[in-house]
């Protein structure tokens, strides 16, 4: 099996306290995997390992994407407040040496793709929460990453906005098919977004069950009412309950 990235028996500790692992995760090209777990189970840590932003104390991290081929979307939009939407989206290109005019042109294209062509000159404070998140998404996609890491990107949004964004992310994924790791603590969202949902136990996070989600990606209309969706959500819920109970015991 070809790999985009993998974590092999990785362990991370903060100040001597184990935070993650041992934890394994292998990611095939174009695959969407959701990491589901309670707060503090090390989901975000696993993401930072995959991004190469952090090193494990034990175990191995395999990363095939080169420089600029990995993108991260955080829980907050994490935009530069002093720069307008287009300048924010152009940042990754400009940092890696793409000429300014070319970078701005590609940023405008990326903004148009997330439906924000008209707000290119607005600054983050002038955008709604959902719009700011779209700008963040456009910035992540502008480099055409092979690996896209989403760290609870919809957590701060209302239900309607988050459903719309979930569909948009999947539609955008279908265009270039990057491998996606999607961190969430929402079971329905995990099942909707991913072909495979990995449940993590409370910290130090370990795998507490994996669920394959049948059905096409991007999701067809009414997918949430299908039997496949319900069955997968039930299995993930069960895994999660068991993981939490294991901690209580």
């Amino acid at each position: 099996m070809s790999l985009v990235a993998a974590l092999r028996a990785v362990e991370v500790a903060y100040g001597g306290r184990p935070a993650l692992g041992p934890f394994d995760l292998a990611l095939a090209p174009g695959e969407i995997v959701a990491l589901v777990g309670p707060s503090g189970c090390g989901k975000s840590t696993a993401l930072r390992l995959l991004a190469g932003l952090e090193q494990p104390v034990r175990g191995e991290v395999v990363r095939t994407p080169g420089r600029g081929e990995t993108s991260v979307v955080f829980q907050a939009p994490t935009l530069m407040p002093w720069a307008n939407a287009a300048a924010n989206v152009a940042l990754p290109l400009e940092l890696s040496g793409v000429a300014k005019a070319e970078a701005r042109h590609r940023a405008d294209e990326a903004l148009a793709k997330v439906g924000l062509g008209q707000v290119a000159t607005l600054k983050p404070a002038q955008l709604s929460g959902g719009m700011a998140m779209r700008v963040s998404l456009a910035r992540a996609l502008v480099t055409r990453p092979r690996l896209l890491l989403l760290d609870e990107p919809f957590a701060a949004l209302d239900e309607i906005t988050r459903r719309k964004l979930a569909d948009d992310v999947l539609a955008l994924w279908a265009e270039t098919r990057p491998a996606i790791v999607f961190v969430t603590h929402n079971v329905e969202e995990a099942v909707y977004m991913a072909a495979r949902a990995v449940v993590m136990s409370p910290g130090p996070g370990r795998s507490a069950g994996e669920t394959e989600v049948a059905g096409p990606l991007p999701r067809p209309a009414q997918f949430r009412t299908t039997e496949g969706f319900r069955a997968a959500a039930e299995k993930v819920s069960l895994d999660l309950d068991r993981a939490m109970a294991g901690r209580a015991a």
Partner: peptide, 20 residues
Amino acid sequence: DLMRLFDLYGARRDQRLLRL
């Protein structure tokens, strides 16, 4: 998190200073 993004995109020291 913006600093992490600059890390991720391999920003140089001067870029970090001037742009962040």
